Amino acid sequence: MSLELLAKCQCGLLSVNLPGPSSSVVACHCHDCQRRSGSPFGVLAYYADESVKITGEATRYERATATGGTFETFFCPTCGSTVYARAGRHPALIGIAVGAICDPTYPAPVRSVWEERKHDWVVIPEPVQHFPRGRS
């Protein structure tokens, strides 16, 4: 049985083949991730860049981070779904939008960052590491 997973946009034109679940899943409550995801927080699963296979074309958006770095979001130019992202401070990693995987058994976050901007009703349970801002 293969553990391979597929993350894809709404229309299916942009997808990423993944080797299986990641052990590095991060929930981010910063304002940019709220706007990027259209929800109270974004959740990305991080993989070594060489372990994934991207199929299809993506539109890239780069923004500055609160800590002085850069963050790139890649989304489908047809349907607009965010599928993956790259943080400038971790160039060898790619973050895959967990929502694009559509697997309710996918592992929960191990870290929750920018909790000072977390919506009051959102509860991220223990044993997750909690950070008021980004992890240093």
Rank of each mutant, 00 (worst) to 15 (best):
L6T: 09
A7C: 11
Q10E: 13
C11G: 10
L13K: 15
L13M: 15
S15D: 06
S15L: 09
P19K: 00
P19M: 07
P19R: 01
G20C: 06
G20A: 11
S23Q: 14
V25C: 01
V26R: 07
C28S: 03
C28G: 05
C28L: 02
H29Y: 08
C30G: 00
D32Q: 15
C33W: 06
C33D: 01
Q34L: 08
R35C: 00
R36M: 12
P40E: 05
L44E: 03
A45V: 00
Y46G: 08
Y46T: 01
Y47R: 02
Y47F: 14
D49S: 12
I54S: 04
I54N: 06
I54E: 06
A58G: 11
R60S: 10
E62F: 02
A64T: 15
T65N: 07
T65A: 08
G68C: 08
T73N: 13
F75I: 05
C79N: 12
G80K: 02
S81Q: 11
T82Y: 09
R86V: 09
R86E: 09
A87I: 10
A87H: 12
A87V: 09
H90S: 13
P91Q: 04
A92Y: 04
I94H: 01
I94W: 02
A97V: 11
A97L: 07
C102E: 14
C102N: 14
P107G: 03
P107L: 02
P109C: 04
R111D: 10
E116H: 14
R117S: 15
W121Q: 10
V122P: 00
P125L: 10
P127S: 08
V128I: 10
H130L: 06
F131M: 03
F131L: 08
P132Q: 11
R135K: 13
